[in-house]
Simulated assay, not measured.
Amino acid sequence: MILAIGTIIVMGALAAYANRTVAPGVAKLPMQWSLKGSVNWTAPRTIAFTFIPGLAAIIMAAILLGDQARNADIALMGGVFLACQLLHITLTQRWFNASRR
């Protein structure tokens, strides 16, 4: 349980940092890209950066409420969600840098 809470705290801090520093001045940020690299849809910046941590919190809570939650399961899920969040932040920053050219 401590591992799940720690992961959510780290993801929340990362989302807050990204909200302040990534793509400043842009109101809507990409949420999905096509295989060709074009943006399929966007979301308001607060939703864009809090979606993955929120989803992670809901899924980890559901896993913890189950009777068979193991630390290895929580660590794996936390790692996957953290990697997804970092990928989204990286792709958003690349999109912003490319759109400024």
Rank of each mutant, 00 (worst) to 15 (best):
residue 2 I to H: 08
residue 3 L to S: 11
residue 4 A to D: 03
residue 5 I to N: 09
residue 7 T to Y: 05
residue 7 T to A: 14
residue 9 I to F: 15
residue 10 V to G: 10
residue 10 V to N: 10
residue 10 V to Q: 11
residue 11 M to G: 08
residue 14 L to Y: 01
residue 14 L to I: 08
residue 15 A to P: 06
residue 15 A to W: 02
residue 15 A to S: 11
residue 16 A to Y: 12
residue 16 A to W: 12
residue 16 A to P: 03
residue 17 Y to V: 14
residue 17 Y to K: 07
residue 18 A to D: 02
residue 18 A to K: 00
residue 18 A to V: 09
residue 20 R to M: 11
residue 21 T to A: 07
residue 21 T to E: 07
residue 23 A to Q: 06
residue 24 P to Q: 12
residue 27 A to Y: 00
residue 30 P to F: 00
residue 31 M to K: 10
residue 33 W to F: 15
residue 34 S to T: 14
residue 36 K to V: 05
residue 36 K to M: 13
residue 37 G to Y: 09
residue 37 G to Q: 12
residue 37 G to C: 09
residue 41 W to S: 03
residue 42 T to P: 00
residue 42 T to C: 05
residue 44 P to C: 00
residue 45 R to C: 01
residue 46 T to H: 04
residue 47 I to A: 13
residue 47 I to S: 11
residue 47 I to N: 07
residue 48 A to L: 02
residue 49 F to I: 04
residue 49 F to S: 01
residue 50 T to P: 01
residue 50 T to N: 11
residue 51 F to Q: 12
residue 51 F to D: 04
residue 52 I to K: 04
residue 53 P to T: 04
residue 53 P to H: 03
residue 55 L to W: 10
residue 55 L to S: 13
residue 55 L to R: 07
residue 57 A to L: 15
residue 57 A to D: 06
residue 60 M to P: 06
residue 60 M to I: 10
residue 61 A to I: 05
residue 62 A to K: 02
residue 63 I to L: 10
residue 63 I to K: 00
residue 63 I to T: 12
residue 64 L to G: 01
residue 64 L to C: 05
residue 65 L to W: 00
residue 66 G to I: 00
residue 66 G to R: 08
residue 67 D to M: 06
residue 68 Q to V: 12
residue 68 Q to G: 12
residue 68 Q to C: 03
residue 70 R to P: 02
residue 70 R to M: 13
residue 71 N to F: 13
residue 71 N to Q: 09
residue 72 A to S: 13
residue 74 I to N: 08
residue 76 L to G: 10
residue 78 G to N: 09
residue 78 G to D: 09
residue 79 G to T: 04
residue 79 G to K: 02
residue 79 G to M: 04
residue 79 G to E: 06
residue 80 V to A: 13
residue 82 L to M: 13
residue 84 C to D: 08
residue 84 C to R: 03
residue 86 L to Q: 09
residue 87 L to F: 10
residue 88 H to V: 02
residue 91 L to K: 15
residue 91 L to D: 05
residue 92 T to K: 12
residue 92 T to P: 07
residue 92 T to Y: 05
residue 95 W to Y: 04
residue 97 N to Q: 15
residue 97 N to I: 15
residue 97 N to L: 15
residue 98 A to S: 06
residue 100 R to V: 10
